[in-house]
Protein backbone atom coordinates (compact mmCIF):
# COMPACT_ATOMS: atom_id res chain seq x y z
CA UNK A 1 0.00 0.00 0.00
CA UNK A 2 1.41 3.35 -0.88
CA UNK A 3 1.03 6.48 1.22
CA UNK A 4 -1.97 7.66 -0.72
CA UNK A 5 -3.90 4.49 0.01
CA UNK A 6 -2.91 4.49 3.67
CA UNK A 7 -4.14 8.02 3.94
CA UNK A 8 -7.39 7.20 2.22
CA UNK A 9 -7.96 4.26 4.54
CA UNK A 10 -7.19 6.41 7.58
CA UNK A 11 -9.56 9.10 6.41
CA UNK A 12 -12.43 6.68 5.91
CA UNK A 13 -11.80 4.91 9.20
CA UNK A 14 -11.62 8.27 10.91
CA UNK A 15 -14.83 9.43 9.30
CA UNK A 16 -16.62 6.24 10.34
CA UNK A 17 -15.35 6.54 13.91
CA UNK A 18 -16.38 10.20 14.02
CA UNK A 19 -19.88 9.37 12.84
CA UNK A 20 -20.24 6.55 15.34
CA UNK A 21 -19.00 8.73 18.18
CA UNK A 22 -21.20 11.70 17.36
CA UNK A 23 -24.36 9.88 16.35
CA UNK A 24 -24.32 6.90 18.73
CA UNK A 25 -25.73 8.62 21.82
CA UNK A 26 -28.06 10.68 19.65
CA UNK A 27 -29.57 7.59 18.06
CA UNK A 28 -29.80 5.97 21.49
CA UNK A 29 -31.86 8.97 22.58
CA UNK A 30 -34.15 8.63 19.57
CA UNK A 31 -34.64 4.90 20.15
CA UNK A 32 -35.35 5.21 23.86
CA UNK A 33 -37.98 7.84 23.17
CA UNK A 34 -39.70 5.37 20.88
CA UNK A 35 -39.28 2.25 23.00
CA UNK A 36 -41.98 1.00 25.32
CA UNK A 37 -39.36 0.22 27.96
CA UNK A 38 -35.87 1.69 28.22
CA UNK A 39 -34.29 -1.73 28.82
CA UNK A 40 -34.48 -2.88 25.20
CA UNK A 41 -30.74 -3.56 25.12
CA UNK A 42 -31.01 -6.27 27.77
CA UNK A 43 -30.59 -9.78 26.41
CA UNK A 44 -34.11 -11.13 26.87
CA UNK A 45 -35.85 -7.85 26.02
CA UNK A 46 -37.06 -6.61 22.69
CA UNK A 47 -37.49 -3.18 21.19
CA UNK A 48 -41.22 -2.54 21.06
CA UNK A 49 -41.88 0.80 19.37
CA UNK A 50 -44.55 3.14 20.68
CA UNK A 51 -45.61 6.78 20.35
CA UNK A 52 -46.90 6.83 23.91
CA UNK A 53 -44.03 8.86 25.31
CA UNK A 54 -44.39 11.48 22.62
CA UNK A 55 -48.08 11.58 23.20
CA UNK A 56 -47.70 12.10 26.91
CA UNK A 57 -44.96 14.69 26.49
CA UNK A 58 -46.87 16.71 23.91
CA UNK A 59 -50.44 16.38 25.07
CA UNK A 60 -50.41 15.78 28.78
CA UNK A 61 -50.70 19.19 30.37
CA UNK A 62 -49.31 18.09 33.65
CA UNK A 63 -45.74 17.57 32.49
CA UNK A 64 -45.63 21.17 31.22
CA UNK A 65 -43.23 20.16 28.51
CA UNK A 66 -44.85 22.23 25.79
CA UNK A 67 -44.87 25.21 28.09
CA UNK A 68 -41.14 24.82 28.76
CA UNK A 69 -40.52 24.63 25.05
CA UNK A 70 -42.53 27.78 24.37
CA UNK A 71 -40.67 29.56 27.17
CA UNK A 72 -37.35 28.48 25.75
CA UNK A 73 -38.15 29.55 22.22
CA UNK A 74 -39.57 32.91 23.28
CA UNK A 75 -36.80 33.71 25.76
CA UNK A 76 -33.94 32.65 23.48
CA UNK A 77 -35.56 34.23 20.44
CA UNK A 78 -36.06 37.63 22.05
CA UNK A 79 -32.61 37.51 23.64
CA UNK A 80 -30.95 36.60 20.34
CA UNK A 81 -32.69 39.33 18.34
CA UNK A 82 -31.89 42.07 20.84
CA UNK A 83 -28.37 40.79 21.35
CA UNK A 84 -27.63 40.73 17.64
CA UNK A 85 -29.03 44.20 17.10
CA UNK A 86 -26.97 45.64 19.94
CA UNK A 87 -23.93 43.77 18.68
CA UNK A 88 -24.50 45.13 15.16
CA UNK A 89 -24.58 48.67 16.52
CA UNK A 90 -21.38 48.04 18.45
CA UNK A 91 -19.69 46.29 15.55
CA UNK A 92 -20.62 49.17 13.27
CA UNK A 93 -19.02 51.62 15.69
CA UNK A 94 -15.91 49.50 16.04
CA UNK A 95 -15.43 48.89 12.32
CA UNK A 96 -16.45 52.28 10.88
CA UNK A 97 -16.45 55.05 13.41
CA UNK A 98 -12.79 54.99 14.27
CA UNK A 99 -13.32 54.48 17.98
CA UNK A 100 -10.18 55.02 20.02
CA UNK A 101 -9.22 51.76 21.69
CA UNK A 102 -11.36 49.60 19.43
CA UNK A 103 -9.16 46.53 19.73
CA UNK A 104 -8.93 46.65 23.54
CA UNK A 105 -12.70 46.98 23.69
CA UNK A 106 -13.05 43.79 21.69
CA UNK A 107 -10.54 41.99 23.87
CA UNK A 108 -12.19 43.16 27.09
CA UNK A 109 -15.55 41.95 25.85
CA UNK A 110 -13.97 38.61 24.95
CA UNK A 111 -12.42 38.44 28.40
CA UNK A 112 -15.80 39.12 29.98
CA UNK A 113 -17.30 36.19 28.11
CA UNK A 114 -14.91 33.96 30.03
CA UNK A 115 -16.41 34.77 33.43
CA UNK A 116 -17.94 31.64 34.93
CA UNK A 117 -21.73 31.97 35.03
CA UNK A 118 -21.82 30.76 38.62
CA UNK A 119 -20.22 34.06 39.64
CA UNK A 120 -23.27 35.92 38.32
CA UNK A 121 -26.18 33.90 39.55
CA UNK A 122 -26.36 34.83 43.21
CA UNK A 123 -26.41 38.52 42.38
CA UNK A 124 -28.93 38.02 39.59
CA UNK A 125 -31.06 35.99 41.98
CA UNK A 126 -31.11 38.82 44.50
CA UNK A 127 -31.64 41.46 41.85
CA UNK A 128 -34.59 39.64 40.31
CA UNK A 129 -36.08 38.86 43.72
CA UNK A 130 -35.84 42.52 44.69
CA UNK A 131 -37.52 43.55 41.44
CA UNK A 132 -40.14 40.85 41.86
CA UNK A 133 -39.09 39.36 38.52
CA UNK A 134 -38.13 35.92 39.70
CA UNK A 135 -39.59 33.22 37.50
CA UNK A 136 -40.55 35.64 34.70
CA UNK A 137 -39.29 36.07 31.16
CA UNK A 138 -37.33 39.31 31.81
CA UNK A 139 -35.38 37.57 34.57
CA UNK A 140 -33.83 35.38 31.89
CA UNK A 141 -33.97 37.58 28.81
CA UNK A 142 -31.93 40.43 30.28
CA UNK A 143 -29.00 38.29 31.45
CA UNK A 144 -29.16 36.22 28.26
CA UNK A 145 -28.76 39.33 26.13
CA UNK A 146 -25.66 40.25 28.09
CA UNK A 147 -24.49 36.64 28.07
CA UNK A 148 -24.66 36.27 24.29
CA UNK A 149 -23.34 39.76 23.49
CA UNK A 150 -19.61 38.99 23.46
CA UNK A 151 -20.14 36.17 20.97
CA UNK A 152 -22.51 38.26 18.85
CA UNK A 153 -20.17 41.22 18.86
CA UNK A 154 -17.16 39.20 17.75
CA UNK A 155 -18.98 37.57 14.91
CA UNK A 156 -20.65 40.78 13.78
CA UNK A 157 -17.31 42.59 13.78
CA UNK A 158 -15.78 39.89 11.61
CA UNK A 159 -18.64 40.19 9.13
CA UNK A 160 -18.88 43.97 9.06
CA UNK A 161 -15.14 44.27 8.51
CA UNK A 162 -15.70 42.68 5.14
CA UNK A 163 -18.39 45.06 3.98
CA UNK A 164 -16.67 47.73 1.86
CA UNK A 165 -16.42 51.18 3.49
CA UNK A 166 -17.46 52.78 0.17
CA UNK A 167 -21.05 51.84 0.91
CA UNK A 168 -21.01 54.10 3.98
CA UNK A 169 -19.55 56.93 1.99
CA UNK A 170 -22.24 56.60 -0.61
CA UNK A 171 -24.84 56.66 2.12
CA UNK A 172 -23.31 59.73 3.74
CA UNK A 173 -23.30 61.50 0.43
CA UNK A 174 -27.00 60.74 0.15
CA UNK A 175 -27.45 62.37 3.52
CA UNK A 176 -28.35 59.27 5.50
CA UNK A 177 -27.64 59.17 9.23
CA UNK A 178 -25.21 56.57 10.49
CA UNK A 179 -28.02 54.55 12.03
CA UNK A 180 -29.90 54.58 8.75
CA UNK A 181 -26.76 53.52 6.89
CA UNK A 182 -26.35 50.58 9.26
CA UNK A 183 -29.94 49.45 9.06
CA UNK A 184 -30.69 50.23 5.39
CA UNK A 185 -27.38 49.57 3.69
CA UNK A 186 -24.86 47.62 5.74
CA UNK A 187 -27.05 45.03 7.45
CA UNK A 188 -28.80 43.93 4.24
CA UNK A 189 -25.39 43.41 2.66
CA UNK A 190 -24.21 41.50 5.74
CA UNK A 191 -27.49 39.61 6.01
CA UNK A 192 -25.89 36.15 5.92
CA UNK A 193 -23.59 37.14 8.76
CA UNK A 194 -26.47 38.64 10.68
CA UNK A 195 -28.39 35.43 10.29
CA UNK A 196 -25.47 33.27 11.40
CA UNK A 197 -25.01 35.43 14.48
CA UNK A 198 -28.70 35.27 15.25
CA UNK A 199 -28.65 31.50 14.99
CA UNK A 200 -25.62 31.13 17.23
CA UNK A 201 -26.93 33.55 19.84
CA UNK A 202 -30.22 31.67 19.82
CA UNK A 203 -28.52 28.31 20.34
CA UNK A 204 -26.32 29.69 23.13
CA UNK A 205 -29.32 31.11 24.95
CA UNK A 206 -31.43 28.02 24.26
CA UNK A 207 -28.79 25.75 25.80
CA UNK A 208 -28.10 27.89 28.88
CA UNK A 209 -28.76 26.01 32.09
CA UNK A 210 -27.38 27.49 35.30
CA UNK A 211 -29.01 30.93 35.16
CA UNK A 212 -32.35 29.37 34.24
CA UNK A 213 -32.01 26.84 37.06
CA UNK A 214 -31.38 29.61 39.58
CA UNK A 215 -33.95 32.14 38.40
CA UNK A 216 -36.99 30.03 37.58
CA UNK A 217 -39.14 27.97 39.88
CA UNK A 218 -41.89 26.56 37.69
CA UNK A 219 -43.47 26.40 34.29
CA UNK A 220 -44.19 30.13 34.21
CA UNK A 221 -40.67 30.74 32.94
CA UNK A 222 -38.74 27.47 33.22
CA UNK A 223 -36.79 26.62 30.09
CA UNK A 224 -36.51 23.25 28.44
CA UNK A 225 -32.97 22.25 29.52
CA UNK A 226 -33.97 22.78 33.15
CA UNK A 227 -37.30 21.09 32.52
CA UNK A 228 -35.58 18.02 31.13
CA UNK A 229 -32.91 17.96 33.82
CA UNK A 230 -35.53 18.02 36.58
CA UNK A 231 -38.13 15.95 34.74
CA UNK A 232 -39.68 13.45 37.07
CA UNK A 233 -42.51 11.04 36.76
CA UNK A 234 -45.55 11.03 38.96
CA UNK A 235 -43.78 9.86 42.08
CA UNK A 236 -40.23 10.77 41.29
CA UNK A 237 -39.25 7.86 39.09
CA UNK A 238 -36.97 8.49 36.14
CA UNK A 239 -39.33 8.22 33.18
CA UNK A 240 -36.72 7.47 30.55
CA UNK A 241 -39.10 7.15 27.65
CA UNK A 242 -40.68 10.52 28.28
CA UNK A 243 -37.39 12.22 29.03
CA UNK A 244 -35.91 11.01 25.77
CA UNK A 245 -39.04 11.86 23.81
CA UNK A 246 -38.86 15.36 25.29
CA UNK A 247 -35.15 15.54 24.54
CA UNK A 248 -35.84 14.54 20.96
CA UNK A 249 -38.59 17.09 20.46
CA UNK A 250 -36.26 19.72 21.91
CA UNK A 251 -33.18 18.86 19.95
CA UNK A 252 -34.70 18.06 16.58
CA UNK A 253 -35.47 21.71 15.70
CA UNK A 254 -32.05 22.85 16.86
CA UNK A 255 -30.36 20.00 15.05
CA UNK A 256 -32.33 20.70 11.87
CA UNK A 257 -31.43 24.38 12.03
CA UNK A 258 -27.84 23.40 12.57
CA UNK A 259 -27.78 20.94 9.69
CA UNK A 260 -29.53 23.34 7.32
CA UNK A 261 -27.26 26.23 8.13
CA UNK A 262 -24.13 24.33 9.05
CA UNK A 263 -21.94 26.37 6.73
CA UNK A 264 -23.05 29.64 8.30
CA UNK A 265 -22.75 28.29 11.81
CA UNK A 266 -19.28 26.95 11.22
CA UNK A 267 -18.32 30.24 9.63
CA UNK A 268 -19.71 32.20 12.53
CA UNK A 269 -18.14 29.97 15.17
CA UNK A 270 -14.72 29.99 13.59
CA UNK A 271 -14.48 33.62 12.52
CA UNK A 272 -14.06 34.98 15.98
CA UNK A 273 -11.86 32.19 17.25
CA UNK A 274 -9.41 31.97 14.40
CA UNK A 275 -9.00 35.70 14.25
CA UNK A 276 -8.35 36.01 17.95
Amino acid sequence: MNERQVKKLLVYLGAAATLLFCLGPFVYMLLTGLATEPDFLRPAKAFIPTWDHYHSVLFSETVHFVRYLINSIAISGISAVVSVFIAALGAYALTRLNIPGGRPILLIVLGISMFPPVSLISYLYKLMSALGWMNTYPALILPYIAWTLPLSLWIMVSYLEQVPQELDKAGLVDGCSRLKILVRIILPVAAPGLFATLLLAFIYAFNEFLIALMLTTDQAARTIPVGIALFEGLHGQVAWGEIMAAATVTTIPVVLLTLLFQRRIIQGLTRGAVKA
Binding site: G132, T217, Q219
Partner: peptide, 19 residues
Protein backbone atom coordinates in the same frame (compact mmCIF):
# COMPACT_ATOMS: atom_id res chain seq x y z
CA UNK B 1 -49.19 25.32 41.56
CA UNK B 2 -45.71 24.13 42.46
CA UNK B 3 -43.51 21.47 40.85
CA UNK B 4 -43.41 17.86 42.01
CA UNK B 5 -39.77 17.91 43.03
CA UNK B 6 -39.35 18.60 46.75
CA UNK B 7 -36.16 20.66 46.47
CA UNK B 8 -37.74 22.78 43.76
CA UNK B 9 -40.82 23.38 45.85
CA UNK B 10 -38.65 24.58 48.68
CA UNK B 11 -36.74 26.86 46.33
CA UNK B 12 -39.96 28.43 45.06
CA UNK B 13 -41.21 29.23 48.56
CA UNK B 14 -37.79 30.46 49.60
CA UNK B 15 -37.84 33.04 46.82
CA UNK B 16 -41.27 34.33 47.72
CA UNK B 17 -40.69 34.42 51.48
CA UNK B 18 -37.10 35.62 51.28
CA UNK B 19 -38.27 38.70 49.40
Amino acid sequence: RQPTDTAQRRQGLLVALGS
